[in-house]
Simulated scan of single mutants.
Amino acid sequence: MNLTEHFTLDEFTRSTTADRLKIDNSVPTDLMPNVQLTAIKLEFVRQALGKPINITSGYRCPALNARVGGVSTSAHTKGLAVDFNSSYGTPKEICQRLIDAGVQFDKLIQEHNQWVHIGFNPNNNRQIVLTAVKQGGKTIYKNGLL
């Protein structure tokens, strides 16, 4: 099912972990408006980058989110966040481009210089920018791009 010109529902729900563990990662009907909103916002991300983006993690049902180590309050479980990569550049370059282009988001995280997390809020995008780093074997989040 197409959500927008460039994004499908399958991209938002695809998960090798869910497949392997036989977890049903279907989006509940009441969360479909959030997924639709996220897809629309991702069109702005794609436009700002001038390149396609590859969603590596979109919607996560609570069971899947727990299995991948996500926090229970994760925007992924509400259909309001995705992790992605793009041939545009490194995660830091992608984040900087989105900031410079004025893309509206709730949270933008450069995750360990491996991928980008972007989350949206239907009511109030706070423009929070963070960098995830390992410290003492644990992930911590520092303000800004490092």
Rank of each mutant, 00 (worst) to 15 (best):
S74W: 00
K92R: 15
K107C: 11
T73M: 10
N85R: 15
V82R: 01
R60M: 14
D30Q: 14
N34F: 12
N25C: 07
F120S: 03
A18S: 05
A66G: 07
K107A: 08
A81G: 04
W115Y: 07
N113S: 14
V68D: 09
R20C: 03
I53Q: 04
Y88C: 08
C95V: 03
G69Y: 13
N125V: 01
M32N: 07
K51Y: 03
K22S: 11
N121T: 09
V71S: 13
R126P: 00
P91F: 08
I23A: 13
Q36W: 02
I53W: 06
K41C: 14
S57N: 09
I109T: 12
D10K: 15
N85M: 11
L31V: 02
I40Y: 01
N123F: 15
V116Q: 05
E93Y: 10
I40A: 10
V82Y: 00
W115I: 11
N85S: 10
V82A: 05
Q104H: 09
N25S: 12
I118E: 01
T38Q: 07
V71E: 04
V68W: 05
C61S: 13
P28N: 05
Q127S: 06
Y88Q: 02
R14E: 14
N85I: 15
A66V: 15
A81K: 04
K92T: 13
P52I: 00
P91I: 15
L31A: 06
F84W: 06
D106F: 12
E43A: 05
D30P: 01
Q47M: 11
S72M: 01
G50K: 07
F120A: 03
Y59I: 04
L31R: 08
V116S: 00
V35H: 09
I55L: 10
A18G: 11
N123D: 13
A66R: 11
G79H: 06
Q114M: 14
T29D: 13
S15I: 06
I23D: 05
G58A: 00
K22V: 15
S86W: 05
T29N: 06
Q47C: 08
T16F: 14
T56M: 07
I118Q: 01
N121K: 03
D10A: 15
Y88R: 07
D19E: 15
D83S: 13
F84S: 04
V35I: 14
G102M: 14
A75V: 01
A75Y: 12
I109Y: 09
E93P: 00
D30L: 14
R126C: 00
A63F: 00
G79A: 04
G89V: 02
E111V: 11
I94M: 05
M32F: 10
G79W: 02
S87M: 05
